[in-house]
């Protein structure tokens, strides 16, 4: 990631409203957060915040912050069992991400339909 991208993302992060911060795609735009999701998917079971943090070079506070963003976006849920905070993947939100390209496909289909109507009407007039 270049410096320009870093600036862009930190600005994005600071100026987004809470609603936008909870956006799934904002949540997965960060490398560490994607790594956390991948780790949870690989283990295929809830992991404690400490277990996750042990795998990263960044501070535990930093990991907690990332987990909060993931949790706000609905991609993970957190549950205290005893004194340990367990993080779990949420399949429904993941399915939305999985479905995202299908959403984009219908976007283009609609737009190309507009294009067809526009060009054909202009062609008939000419």
């Amino acid at each position: 990631m270049g410096q320009k991208d870093k600036d862009y993302y930190s600005i994005t992060y600071q100026t987004k409203t809470m609603k936008q911060r909870r956006d799934v795609f904002f949540a997965i735009a960060d490398e560490n957060r994607r790594a956390i999701l991948t780790m949870l998917a690989k283990e295929n079971k809830p992991l404690t915040v400490n277990t996750i943090a042990a795998d990263f070079d960044v501070s535990r506070e930093n990991i907690s912050k990332h987990i909060r963003v993931l949790s706000e976006s609905g991609l993970v849920s957190t549950n205290f069992i005893g004194r340990e905070n367990y993080v779990q993947l949420e399949a429904v939100r993941l399915a939305e991400v999985h479905n995202w390209i299908a959403t984009f496909e219908s976007f283009w289909k609609g737009k190309l339909h507009n294009l067809k109507k526009l060009v054909e009407s202009k062609n008939k007039k000419a």
Partner: peptide, 17 residues
């Protein structure tokens, strides 16, 4: 997972339009 979008659209007008 589908990683590529490919859509064909026929338009009743010449290519330059």
């Amino acid at each position: 997972m589908k990683e590529q979008i490919k859509i064909e659209q026929f338009i009743e007008a010449p290519v330059d339009k």
